[in-house]
Simulated scan of single mutants.
Amino acid sequence: MPVPYIRHARHADEETLGWLDRRCWSVLHSVQPRPRPPYEPFFGDRFGPRDHLVAERAGAVVGYIRLGMPTPLECNAHVRQIQGLVVADAARGGGVGRALLRAVQDEARRQGARRITLRVLGHNAPARRLYEAEGFAVEGVLPQEFLLDGTYVDDVLMGRAL
């Protein structure tokens, strides 16, 4: 399968990204309740197009990754945090997630970051394997941090130097 084209999001992507986000929602990777109408805008005050990279294949959006600051503190400004990664079901296993992870690390470096972190649910083994394959290491675990569908789930903190 060809490597997906990665680009910065545009305002015109908002409807597509919102639909993709809702379509791919799963308790495997989300602590938020299942989205229900009326839907919140995908872009808002906290995250806009500049905070997202989009993956396209054959002109169709097949995934996105969100990059943000973990805190507003100046002493933490050298760190970026992945705050969302979604790949369309039909595109999974085709290198989209890996391409987005590599592109977001390049973007974080471009922004002057020295470290990149993320949080992943302990039961999300496919995502954890992908992150580990891309050089992320477990840096902490918050045991039974979330109660999802009647099951307590760990919050796993991962990171790497850039």
Rank of each mutant, 00 (worst) to 15 (best):
G122H: 11
R114T: 03
R36H: 12
V54T: 11
E107C: 00
V61S: 01
R115M: 12
R50N: 09
A12T: 15
V141R: 11
L73T: 03
D154Y: 08
P2M: 07
A127E: 07
P4N: 06
G97V: 07
V31W: 10
H8G: 12
E14A: 13
G84P: 02
L53G: 03
I6Q: 02
D106K: 05
A9C: 08
R102D: 08
F136C: 02
R109S: 15
F146M: 04
L162N: 00
E40F: 08
E56V: 07
D106Q: 09
G112F: 13
V27S: 15
F146Y: 15
T117P: 00
A60I: 00
A12L: 11
R23M: 04
A99G: 13
P41A: 11
Q81G: 05
C75W: 15
N76H: 12
N124A: 15
T16Q: 03
L142K: 07
H11P: 05
V120D: 13
E74T: 10
L85N: 11
L118S: 10
G84E: 07
A55I: 05
N124P: 06
R128K: 15
R80Q: 09
Q105D: 02
L73H: 14
H11N: 02
F146C: 05
V104F: 01
V3I: 11
P4A: 11
R110N: 12
R66W: 03
A9I: 14
D155T: 04
D89N: 06
G48K: 03
P35M: 10
R34F: 12
E145R: 15
L148M: 09
R36F: 07
A12W: 10
L121Y: 08
T117F: 03
F146R: 05
E145A: 14
Q81I: 10
A12Y: 06
G48M: 09
G122Q: 12
E56H: 05
L162S: 00
A58S: 14
E107M: 02
A88H: 05
F146A: 13
G63K: 05
D51Q: 04
N124W: 15
V87A: 08
G93S: 10
G94F: 13
G84Y: 02
R46P: 05
G63M: 05
E107Q: 05
G63V: 07
P49A: 09
V31N: 06
P70V: 00
G94M: 11
V61D: 00
E74G: 15
A99I: 05
L162D: 01
H8R: 15
C24S: 12
A137C: 04
L162H: 01
V86H: 02
F47Y: 15
M1I: 07
P143W: 06
R46A: 12
V3G: 06
V141E: 06
L130E: 00
P143T: 12
A133S: 13
E40R: 14
Q81T: 13
A58T: 07
G95E: 15
W25D: 10
H78R: 12
V3R: 11
E56G: 09
R98L: 09
Y152S: 07
P41S: 04
V27L: 08
P37R: 10
A161R: 10
V62T: 08
